[in-house]
Computed example of a mutant assay.
Amino acid sequence: MHPRSIKGTLRILAFTSTILLMFASCIPQKEIVYFQNHEDKKGYDNPYDTPKTITEKYILQPNDALLIRVNTANPKLSEFFNAGGSNQNVAATGQSPLYTYPIDDSLYIDFPFVGKIRLDGCTRAMATERIREALIPFVNDAQVTVRLANPSFVALGEVNNRGRIPMGREQVTIFEAVAMAGDVRPFGKKREVRVVRPTPEGSISFFVDLTDKNLVDSDKYYIYPNDIVYIRPMKAKQWGIGESFSFGVFSSMLAMYLTLNAIFGK
């Protein structure tokens, strides 16, 4: 082949490769904007149901820890039943302190002077009632306060803050969870976010679309303790096109083009 033909072919290849990579690195707006109205799109069918309830959906799990306080009309009795759990350095309040009681593998807590209390299948409200009932033989006017001591979820994949993240309460919205995780990175798939949720019958998983406004107030809008939120990478990330594309890949292509031009440009 004539040198000029080789030179022209290589220039075209280098230029075409650069253009293709630049287009591949561009992310369509529909992939990154939150709260879009997808209802006008052809073939759209709202995948979300209206929630029957929002709170008290979380079922207590082994290794959870409960903060418990018992109040009665008799201050001496209150002090007696608030003698402390396994960790007595948590959550002082304006009244008596709340002590930590871990849930063991058999879903029991060991409550002072009462003994083992089984909390299988319990929400926080149900656990409160079971503890109050266990106290009836000792005191019939007990007011029991129960809170989760360690609510948290796990964020994985294309987020800025990966790992176990404290929630502060028993449920947060999926958008609050994403914000706590430092938001989705540029090449994270907002339209296909997997949520893995432990249940007494085993883990379940489902997908949510952060770009779909119908997700708000749906049955999948909330994240609960011990959920795993996984943001998958786009294919462009798998091809090696990432946030450093404009500086890494483009500079490499430019260097290759200049080298070929220097070799065959004469």
Rank of each mutant, 00 (worst) to 15 (best):
N89L: 11
F80P: 00
N87L: 10
I32P: 03
D64Y: 03
L98Q: 09
V33E: 14
Y99Q: 01
Y99F: 12
F35K: 14
G84H: 02
E31P: 06
F35M: 13
P75C: 05
Q88V: 07
Y99E: 01
N82S: 02
L98N: 02
Q61V: 04
E79V: 05
N46P: 10
L77I: 01
Q88S: 09
Q36T: 05
V90Y: 08
F80H: 04
Y48A: 05
G43H: 09
E39G: 09
F80M: 02
Y44W: 04
N89H: 10
L98I: 07
P51C: 08
L60Y: 03
K30L: 15
Y34H: 12
Q61L: 10
Q88T: 11
G94K: 11
N46S: 13
G43Y: 06
D40K: 12
V33G: 04
V70L: 00
F80C: 00
I59Q: 04
P75M: 03
D45L: 14
I32Q: 12
G84K: 01
A92C: 05
S78R: 00
P75T: 04
G85H: 01
T72Q: 01
G94F: 06
N89T: 14
D64V: 08
N74T: 04
P51N: 09
L77D: 01
R69C: 02
R69M: 06
I59M: 09
P62G: 07
E79H: 11
G85T: 01
F35N: 15
H38I: 07
G94W: 07
P51I: 07
D49T: 07
A65Y: 04
N82L: 00
G85R: 00
K76E: 12
P75D: 04
N46R: 11
K52C: 07
S96C: 05
H38N: 07
Q95N: 14
T55G: 14
Q88H: 05
H38W: 15
L67P: 00
I54G: 04
I59F: 03
N89I: 10
T50G: 03
K42I: 13
T100E: 15
E39Q: 15
K52S: 14
Q95Y: 09
F35P: 06
G84A: 04
T100G: 10
R69I: 00
T93V: 06
A65H: 09
Q88N: 10
A83I: 08
E31H: 15
I68Y: 00
E39W: 11
L77H: 00
T93I: 07
Q61G: 07
G85S: 05
Q29I: 14
N37F: 10
T55A: 12
Q36E: 10
E79R: 11
Q36D: 06
G43W: 05
A65Q: 12
S78N: 01
A73N: 13
Y101I: 05
L98P: 00
E56V: 06
I54L: 12
K42T: 13
T72K: 01
Y99K: 02
N46T: 14
G43Q: 07
L98K: 05
N46F: 11
K30Q: 15
K52Q: 15
I68W: 00
Q36P: 02
